[in-house]
């Protein structure tokens, strides 16, 4: 087992940094999970959200007033 540096003597933010840094470095199954999380977030936010899920009202209207009018038209005339 490798010698662990004593981060308890360091400041709060340094200890927080090392909590994550050492945690990520010593991961085993976690590395696979982070890869899955990364791929998943890329698919969700870059591919699905940007290409297939634009905000419908924002794509039709520029202002809040226009959105109000659009929805009013949808609800009154439908």
């Amino acid at each position: 087992m490798s010698e662990q540096p004593d981060h308890n003597k360091q400041g709060f933010w340094s200890r927080v940094f090392h909590l994550y840094y050492d945690g990520f470095r010593s991961m085993t199954v976690g590395k696979t999970l982070w890869l899955i999380i990364g791929i998943k977030l890329f698919i969700f936010f870059v591919i699905i959200k940007m290409i297939f899920f634009p905000n419908f009202l924002s794509s039709k209207c520029d202002t809040e007033q226009e959105k109000t009018e659009y929805v009013r038209h949808q609800l009154v005339d439908r």
């Binding site: 976690g30 999970l33 982070w34 899955i36 999380i37 998943k40 977030l41 969700f44 699905i48 959200k49 297939f52 899920f53 634009p54 905000n55 419908f56 009202l57």
Partner: peptide
């Protein structure tokens, strides 16, 4: 937790588009 996290965000995408 890791696999499931953020799967709910898709529902919010659907609210805005569909």
């Amino acid at each position: 937790f890791a696999i499931g996290v953020a799967t709910g965000i898709i529902l919010e995408f659907e609210f805005g588009t569909n």
